[in-house]
């Protein structure tokens, strides 16, 4: 099966500044992928590279097995909702649906109309007067009605109020359930993505820190608390993500392959947010010393 997104050393530079450095990823199709990272980490750059709005300075990217935007067929296979959901302000909702049909041979008009009706959007309303939530829903409708295999959404809920955010994610998930489309969406908040994603990519300061199935990530990362012991011998497959040592106690956040047997350790589950924050914290403190890119094992 072809990957949804496959990159090798993908790099985008603007002059001397790197927006994305040596990004190597292999995201299987059929996933809902969360792309998390602070603002300015390179999320938008990565997504723009995936939809062909940008071209790499170095490295390689393939989306659904092809170079992004290499042909109109390839453009048709990927639906994109850009940040702040740009729409033609002076055109009505109905105009947008019509233009979607004009520029997409794979346009599913029934789907578009059904969604607009379901959302309660007025087709004669100008897009410029829609609320943030309605804009996002209309933009999503445009992206979905071209019946893509992959949906790419850049910070789709960042500017929405909690209710609109929930409604948007409900829409998105019902689309995934109905059409089996792969999705990659970015956010600077893990909490936005926790429930909807099954694959996570953490991007900080233009680098991929960790990527993998959320379930595997949660199964392989734990917080361990134990008495302080100097000259600690840790199993070779442990990687310490975060370490807090007090006089008596030692708390570690580790990534490990084998189960933890040592009874001296109290093992605690992590939630996704803890995990992501630990990686971000590590990048902030000693990212330059350690191996910075740690890419999850993928099937």
């Amino acid at each position: 099966m072809t990957s949804a997104i496959d990159t090798q050393g993908l790099t985008k530079r603007y002059g001397r500044r790197s927006a994305l450095s040596g990004c190597t990823l292999s995201i299987p199709a059929g996933k809902v992928v969360g792309l998390v990272g602070p603002n300015g980490a390179g999320k938008t750059t990565l997504l723009h590279l995936a939809v062909g709005l940008l071209e790499p300075s170095a490295g390689r990217i393939e989306v659904l097995g092809h170079r992004p935007a290499e042909s109109s067929e390839q453009l048709a296979r990927v639906g994109f909702v850009a940040q702040n959901t740009p729409l033609y302000a002076s055109m009505t909702v109905g105009d947008h649906l019509r233009l979607g049909g004009w520029v997409n041979p794979t346009w599913d008009e029934d789907l578009a109309l059904e969604r607009v009706e379901h959302l309660g959007l007025d087709v004669s309303q100008k897009a410029g007067t829609l609320s943030g939530g309605q804009r996002a829903q209309l933009a999503l409708t445009l992206a979905v009605a071209k019946r893509p295999e992959l949906l790419v959404l850049d910070e789709p809920v960042a500017s929405l109020d909690p209710l609109a955010r929930r409604e948007f994610l409900q829409s998105l998930m019902s689309i995934v359930a109905e059409h089996g489309v792969s999705v990659i969406l970015s956010s600077h908040l893990v909490s936005d993505l926790e429930r909807v994603c099954d694959y996570l990519v953490v991007l900080v300061a233009s680098r991929v820190l960790v990527a993998g199935e959320i379930e595997e990530l949660l199964a392989s990362h734990h917080r361990l608390t134990g008495p302080r012991r100097d000259g600690l011998h840790l199993p070779p497959d442990w990687e310490i993500i975060e370490e807090t040592v007090t006089e008596r106690q030692c708390a570690l956040l580790v990534r490990h392959e084998s189960p933890v047997h040592d009874p001296a350790w109290t093992v605690e589950q992590l939630d996704l947010e803890d995990l992501v924050l630990a990686y971000m914290g590590r990048e902030a403190t000693d990212g330059h010393k350690q191996g910075r890119t740690l890419v999850g094992a993928h099937s």
Partner: peptide, 16 residues
Amino acid sequence: TVKEVVERLAINPNTV
């Protein structure tokens, strides 16, 4: 149905 659950809870269909 999976779609109903997903639409209500805004969660990933694979979870259901």
